[in-house]
C-alpha cells in the first residue's frame, strides 16, 4: 500500500508553525517512513503533483492569493487541517480586522514611519500583486476545514500526535501540556 501524501503551505502566517513542525526533531525520519511529502516549503516542491491525502494550512487569508491557494488545496486534498492560531482565527494579521482597509493601506504606505520613502505616494496596485481582502479570514470561513491544531505555534509533540493519529487512523491523544493556544 502506498504511503499517505502530505502537502503543506503557509498563507498569511509567519512560518513559525512550519518551524514547529521541524521541532519534532529526529522523529522526522519516522515521519518520512509513514508519509510522502508533496508540495511544501520544507522540500520546496512548488506545485501539487498528485492527489493529496492530508493538506496542512498555516496562516489565514489576508489576500486573494491566500484564498486561491486555500481553494486549490481544498480541491486537491482529502483532508484539510488548519494549523496554528492564524489559520484558525486570523491570528496576528487579524488585528487589523475592524479597521477599515483604507486606513490600513494608508498607514502602511502613506502615513507610517517610512512614508518619506514613498515620495510619489504610490499605493501598490500592480496587477501582479495579490489583492488585499477587506479583512483577514480564518481558513474555515473560506473553505471547509476538517481538523484544527491550535497553538502559536502548535507544539511539536502535539503535531506529532495529530499526524501519526491521522495516518494510522487512530484516535488522537491530546496530552494537556502540549495543547495550548500560545
Amino acid at each position: 500500500m502506498s504511503k499517505p501524501v502530505i502537502a503543506t503551505t503557509s498563507l498569511a502566517g509567519c512560518f513559525g508553525c512550519h518551524m514547529s513542525l521541524l521541532d519534532i526533531d529526529e522523529r522526522i525520519l519516522e515521519l518520512i517512513e509513514l508519509v510522502e511529502f508533496n508540495k511544501s516549503p520544507i522540500n520546496d516542491i512548488k506545485k501539487l503533483t498528485k492527489p493529496i491525502d492530508i493538506g496542512i494550512i498555516e496562516g489565514g487569508c489576508c489576500n486573494s492569493e491566500n484564498v486561491e491557494v486555500l481553494r486549490y488545496f481544498r480541491e486537491n486534498c482529502k483532508t484539510l487541517i488548519s494549523f496554528g492560531e492564524c489559520a484558525i482565527m486570523g491570528g496576528l494579521p487579524a488585528l487589523r480586522n475592524g479597521i477599515p482597509v483604507e486606513e490600513c493601506i494608508k498607514e502602511a504606505y502613506l502615513d507610517g514611519p517610512t512614508v518619506q520613502l514613498n515620495k510619489d505616494k504610490v499605493l501598490p496596485n500592480d496587477p501582479e500583486l495579490p489583492i488585499i481582502l477587506d479583512r483577514v479570514y480564518p481558513c474555515h470561513e473560506v473553505v471547509k476545514i476538517d481538523y484544527y491544531l491550535p497553538g502559536c505555534a502548535p507544539r511539536a509533540d502535539f503535531i506529532w500526535e495529530a499526524v501519526v493519529a491521522l495516518v494510522t487512523n487512530n484516535e488522537m491523544a491530546v496530552p494537556y501540556e502540549v495543547f495550548k493556544f500560545d
Binding site: 486573494s64 501598490p124 477587506d134
Partner: peptide, 16 residues
C-alpha cells in the same frame, strides 16, 4: 462557505 472573494477585494481595489 459563504465567503465571496469578489466582494472581499472590492474595498482595497478601490483604495489603491
Amino acid at each position: 462557505n459563504g465567503f465571496n472573494l469578489e466582494e472581499a477585494i472590492q474595498e482595497s481595489c478601490q483604495v489603491v
